[in-house]
Amino acid sequence: MKLTNKDILGIKELSVDEINLILDTAASFIEVSTREIKKVPTLRGKTVVNLFFEASTRTRTSFEIAGKRLSADTINISATTSSVVKGETLIDTARNLEAMNPDAIVIRHSAAGAPHMLARMVKQSIINAGDGAHEHPTQALLDMMTIKEKKGTVSGLKVAIVGDIAHSRVARSNIYGLTKMGSHVIVAGPAMMIPRDIARMGVTVYNNLAEAIKDVDIIMMLRIQLERQQQKIFPSLREYSSYFCLNRQNIKLAKEDVLVMHPGPINRGIEISPDIADGPYSIILDQVTNGVAVRMALLYLLIGGQR
């Protein structure tokens, strides 16, 4: 069993078998990160470029660690330090990178479809580390891995995703992944954060938190992008947090063994009250740990052998 495509552009393109392969492989990689010497020689001599056109500490670091633990050489290029700021186009950047012959390019970009464009232009494996509001496949994979680890399965669960669904790539990738794996996905947020026709993606839509999280197994809270308020997408953070913040009271509506997830970084007290974020329901830090394993698995599966 191996992956069909040379790239990981989105969860939409992955089959259930491929998702299972990635999750199982990632589970085996967890152990490597617990060793005293957290490094295996698997990708010795391979080069992974982290091409980040959008600020990110968490995802970039996670990819960097994943690459290094597999002995790959990882190079970080961020928009602020590269020639991107000098007006070089994505095409030029891609061609230049290709000429340096790396084995994989991890790309984060604020424009949806940028990784797809890159994948069409270069022969290297492209991993989408988040493109606009489109997809963030590695996040969804690590979320599914964490759910599977805690619940034993990713199917037959009720999962509520709460927040700015319209602008969230995490939401889209998780909707694709969780529905494929057989879970029931609920999305919730104020009307202006729910994109048109989202129900056709196979989800149930609510405009209030209480209905959304009733009897669910998992609650995924999304990060509210503070700049959206400047764009007048919603009236105020104060109002949002008083109606959509997950707290000690409303979490009782969910199943007793509910788990709370968040892709980070958290705006404490806005999406999640601090006691919930740090409390027993929270598996937020497990998500981070599994993030490294999932990214190791993808690098291994994509460039670990001959294609």
Binding site: M1, K2, D24, T25, A27, S28, F29, E31, V32, V40, P41, T42, L70, A297, Y300, L301, G304, G305, Q306
Partner: peptide, 17 residues
């Protein structure tokens, strides 16, 4: 993860724990 023939392997071996 330590195999020397990974680079040459046609089918990727399933990784175990």
């Amino acid at each position: 993860l330590y195999r020397d023939d990974l680079r040459l392997a046609n089918k990727k071996p399933m990784l175990g724990k």
